[in-house]
Simulated assay, not measured.
Amino acid sequence: MTTEIFKASVQYNDWKGSSAADSADQKGPSTWLKENGHINDGEFLLGVKMFAGENHGVHEDPVFVEFLIATSGNFENIKTMIEGSAGPIEVRRVRIDMDLSQFIGLFKRFDVTLSRNSMLEGLEYHYDD
């Protein structure tokens, strides 16, 4: 059994930031997983991790996607279980190679911010148009 921390990290971490995504109205990650036989009834998609590399000036698909799935429950009881846990959370991991456009297409909107050594993270900024 492997234990990891759910946090983005690459070899040198020169650029760090945050991300946010809106659920798709029609066919989001959970629906895609179910339609492709990767998630069962009663399971709950808890997390998604995507890695792209080794890029050397040009991206070449695929990207590597991990879906972290709670094997039983719903949002409320899994949230309660996580809040009451003192140790690692038990999940089932599904690893899929996807085209980048297919991965981004699982979300309605997708936003990523990166700044050198996290220098801008959480700061206000302004600029002239």
Rank of each mutant, 00 (worst) to 15 (best):
Y12G: 01
G73N: 01
L114P: 02
G84N: 12
E54Q: 04
E76A: 07
D41I: 04
P88R: 03
V94M: 08
V65I: 14
P88S: 12
A70P: 06
V10Q: 14
F75W: 13
R93T: 15
A70T: 02
L120S: 01
F103V: 02
I5L: 14
G47W: 06
L123V: 07
G47S: 01
Q26A: 14
L114F: 01
K79C: 10
N117K: 06
W32Y: 15
S19L: 08
I82N: 06
M50A: 03
Q11L: 15
H59Q: 07
H59C: 05
H38P: 00
R92M: 11
G105T: 03
A70E: 01
N117V: 02
E83G: 02
A52K: 01
R95V: 10
F44G: 04
K108A: 12
L100M: 00
L120R: 03
M98H: 03
G37V: 08
R95D: 11
S18F: 13
Y125M: 13
V112R: 02
G105D: 04
T31R: 04
V91C: 10
G37K: 05
E54N: 04
E35K: 11
D111C: 01
R116V: 02
A20S: 13
F110M: 08
D128S: 02
Y127E: 15
L100D: 00
G17D: 11
G73H: 02
H59V: 04
A21I: 13
I96H: 05
K79F: 12
E60S: 12
T113S: 11
K7C: 14
E4Q: 10
I82H: 06
S30Y: 02
H59D: 03
K108G: 13
K7G: 14
A8Y: 05
F103C: 04
N117C: 07
G105P: 04
A52F: 00
Q26M: 10
T31H: 03
D99F: 10
S23D: 15
M98R: 06
A21R: 13
D129T: 03
S18N: 13
L68W: 10
M98L: 14
M119L: 10
A8W: 05
S18P: 01
F6I: 15
G28S: 10
G84D: 08
D41M: 00
D25T: 09
S101V: 08
A8L: 05
L106S: 04
V94N: 02
N74I: 09
N77D: 15
H126A: 13
E121H: 02
H126N: 14
D22S: 10
Y127G: 14
A20F: 11
N74V: 12
G47Y: 02
L45I: 07
V112W: 01
A86R: 07
I104L: 08
F107P: 03
S115V: 09
R95Q: 12
F67Q: 05
M98K: 06
D97V: 01
G42C: 09
T113R: 02
S30H: 09
I5Q: 15
F51A: 08
E121D: 06
S9G: 05
T31V: 01
N55C: 11
A86E: 01
K7Y: 14
I39E: 03
E66Y: 09
